[in-house]
Design a protein around this nucleic acid. Sequence first.
DNA 1: GATGAATGAGTGTTCATTCAT
DNA 2: AATGAATGAACACTCATTCAT
Lengths: 203, 203, 203, 203
Amino acid sequence: MFSKFLNLETEKRDRILNAALDEFVQKGYENASTNEIVKKAGISKGLLFHYFKNKKQLYLYLYDYSLDIFEKEFFGKMAAMENEIFTKMRQIVLLKLELIHKHPDMFNFLMAAVRDESQEITLRNKELIERSYLKILENIDLSPFKGDLDIPKAINIIVWTLQGFSNEVQEKIKFLSLDEINYDEILAKMDGYLDVLRKSFYT
Amino acid sequence: MFSKFLNLETEKRDRILNAALDEFVQKGYENASTNEIVKKAGISKGLLFHYFKNKKQLYLYLYDYSLDIFEKEFFGKMAAMENEIFTKMRQIVLLKLELIHKHPDMFNFLMAAVRDESQEITLRNKELIERSYLKILENIDLSPFKGDLDIPKAINIIVWTLQGFSNEVQEKIKFLSLDEINYDEILAKMDGYLDVLRKSFYT
Amino acid sequence: MFSKFLNLETEKRDRILNAALDEFVQKGYENASTNEIVKKAGISKGLLFHYFKNKKQLYLYLYDYSLDIFEKEFFGKMAAMENEIFTKMRQIVLLKLELIHKHPDMFNFLMAAVRDESQEITLRNKELIERSYLKILENIDLSPFKGDLDIPKAINIIVWTLQGFSNEVQEKIKFLSLDEINYDEILAKMDGYLDVLRKSFYT
Amino acid sequence: MFSKFLNLETEKRDRILNAALDEFVQKGYENASTNEIVKKAGISKGLLFHYFKNKKQLYLYLYDYSLDIFEKEFFGKMAAMENEIFTKMRQIVLLKLELIHKHPDMFNFLMAAVRDESQEITLRNKELIERSYLKILENIDLSPFKGDLDIPKAINIIVWTLQGFSNEVQEKIKFLSLDEINYDEILAKMDGYLDVLRKSFYT
DNA sequence: GATGAATGAGTGTTCATTCAT
DNA sequence: AATGAATGAACACTCATTCAT
């Protein structure tokens, strides 16, 4: 399907990829202009459609491509993590932050794509979340939890708390440049939340 | 700004409002067609742009209008609520469900609008959330919380848990028709989460 | 359907009609460019699609419009014709020539459209031919035909002979300007053919 | 001009020829895609344009090539035909039917090409028709014709009658599959027409 | 106030043809 | 000879917005 594109010299491929990523992130799927993409990538109109039969396929390719990179980096490093849930969740958050710094455009694109709600993307995304969730929770040490606790619910509460916290942080730092962000402060706050939960759920 | 529109006879105003709401909900901002809106509303092309100088202004008006109605209904009923946080949160969830049933289009529109992330909407939304948050938390009875607990954090955890639960439910019922939804089951599950939190945070 | 277009001032309507007719005649359906049509008609791109929802509809409108005019003129004058078949056929040929002179573009368009073979056109055309045929043959005086002759076949032979002759003439005069055509010579030749057939088929 | 192409190995040449023929027959000149042709032929884009400088040249080559094959088969077998005109015309019709069955694609292509009306094709076609006509009429036995008959006109009437009949038949069988066609019935009808003409024109 | 004809820059996509390899 | 990446003008069609009436 995309073999033509894959055989391209890396430099040109990246130019196209970045141009498209950039345009989609800035304007969203509908508003993104293939005209702008080719201009940014410095290629002709026809060439884009030589590689991708239409705008949608380009978008889906970008999604799969970004997801692939994230998954590889994510799952690869998750194997070596702690089994103690709070430590593990903390490590996951740090890993996520690291990936955002490494591939900010891809991350933004993925976030935006998920909101887009196209059938195909929603499906791929659902699968990913399920796989991630299983991976995160496998090997978790359940022994420290209080005896009368509904552990599955407790785990969901931990996950949702980190999600809520994460959203709040993102909302706040949205308009800051990367070097204005005080990660120590953020992590300290997060540790505060994890402390509350640990004290509440562990014996 | 919209004074011309406000002076319109109620029936015509509502026709325009509903037509626009409907179109934006169904197709999103970009894909919504002003042509379709005027057709649905039974007015001329020119008239729409006589009342709203462009598509964006119409959209923002709709947002403010919807928000207004929600806020009124929400804040109005919130005054009479319990001060015990779990009871109050439960009441808020029920109220939210009630409003979704009463104004499904407006609710969908607001949800979609928030995701849109346009500067103006984001700002208005931030303000609303802050106001709501203050309102929800005012008069909360803090005495039952454990003495050594970081109460503000605990409250956030409660809010985020309900948010996470709510998102999960929405994801699941997205493809169900309204009468296929089993509300009792959903509420029972929610009560389960509230129980876990109450046992953990209360003395 | 085309009410918008019909309410247009005659001058502009004709400009659009002629521009489209001209373009379709010159280049055929596929190769005709809506860009060229609007340029020739001196209107904006959008306006053409305001009147006709797409290229195909414009084409079909043109077909129906042209056909209508031809049919009216044709059927109108056919009522007053002789019942003697050779005289009638001669009158029909003369009428056809007259119409070609009066509406050369429409005639060319109709001829081209029939060859186009699109489903819709083929259907409309088949109906027209059947109607014409019935009209031509109604009231024909069969008494002069030889007694042992298969009259329906003889009539078909007369029709096909005129068709064949007509095609041959058209082929020859295709590259001549209108005033270079010697109609007297052509008609004399045609009368020769009709004489042969009359002598052969009549007692 | 096409010497490069002629020196190609027969198998590859035929692959290209058939692919092009197929595409042109299915979609017509304008809509035929060189992309599809090279895909069907299993050759590269560049190679097609190495052999034929453009689409038009390929089309014209195909026309000449098809015509050549038809002419050879046609003229070859025409030498051995009867001199009695009605018998000969019947034999020609049968031969035509035979050729349609033997080379349906080429026949369809030629028919379509003639309708195309491009200058070059029209010219080649005119020449062919004249040559065929001369060939058909050479050696015809004029003795059975009635003494006072305009024989050249009579012959044209015979030809046009067969043409008209043939067109009518083609119109009718267009949507039938090959084995649904009742050839005996068609030929019987045709013989009816030839009988009418024979009785009328012969002493 | 109310209409809807008119605009034109914009869209995604196609495709015959070229050309470096 | 053979490849297929690359071009770019052209296509039909859309749509928010304007404006004369």
